[in-house]
Amino acid sequence: MSDMARRDWDDAFSNMAHVDGSEKLPAFWADRAARYRASGVRLDEDIRYGDADRELMDIVWPDEAPKGLAVFVHGGFWIRMDKSHWTDLAEGARANGWAIAFPQYTLAPEMHISQMTRQVAAAIALAADKVDGPIRLAGHSAGGHLVTRMVCADSPLPAPVLNRILHVLSLSGLHDLRPLMWTAMNELLKLDEAEACAESVALQRPNDRANVTAWVGGGELPEFIRQTKLLAIMWDGLDADIREVIEGKHNHFTVLDSLKEANSPLTRAFIGELG
Results as ranks from 00 to 15, higher is better:
M81L: 13
D257A: 03
H167Y: 04
L146T: 01
V131G: 02
T106W: 05
G76C: 08
G218K: 02
M234G: 04
R118Q: 15
R7K: 15
D20K: 13
N263Y: 07
H112S: 15
W98D: 00
D53S: 11
G76S: 07
G143Y: 03
H175Y: 09
D257S: 08
W98I: 00
K67Y: 10
M181G: 13
N207A: 14
M81S: 13
A196N: 08
M234P: 01
A17W: 07
L203E: 13
R32I: 02
M111G: 09
A210N: 05
A128G: 09
I100H: 00
V131K: 01
G21E: 08
W78M: 06
C197K: 15
W86T: 07
A194C: 07
T106P: 04
E247K: 15
M111D: 15
L137K: 02
A128M: 03
A5T: 15
V71C: 02
A121P: 14
S264P: 03
S200A: 04
E45Q: 10
R205P: 04
L25S: 06
F28P: 02
D129A: 12
V71M: 04
P158D: 13
A95I: 02
E64H: 14
F13K: 02
V131T: 09
D53T: 12
A30D: 11
D44N: 07
R164F: 03
M150C: 04
E110T: 15
R54N: 09
S200P: 07
Q227I: 03
F102P: 05
S200V: 03
A196S: 12
R149S: 12
E23T: 13
F72V: 00
K130W: 10
G219R: 13
A159F: 07
D3Q: 15
P179A: 07
S141Q: 09
W182M: 13
V151L: 14
M57Y: 12
G217L: 02
T228H: 04
Q115F: 05
R80Q: 11
H85L: 14
G50I: 05
V71F: 03
M16V: 12
R136N: 07
V216P: 01
F72T: 00
K130E: 12
S264C: 08
D241K: 10
F72G: 00
T228G: 08
G68K: 05
G173I: 03
V168P: 02
F253K: 08
G21W: 08
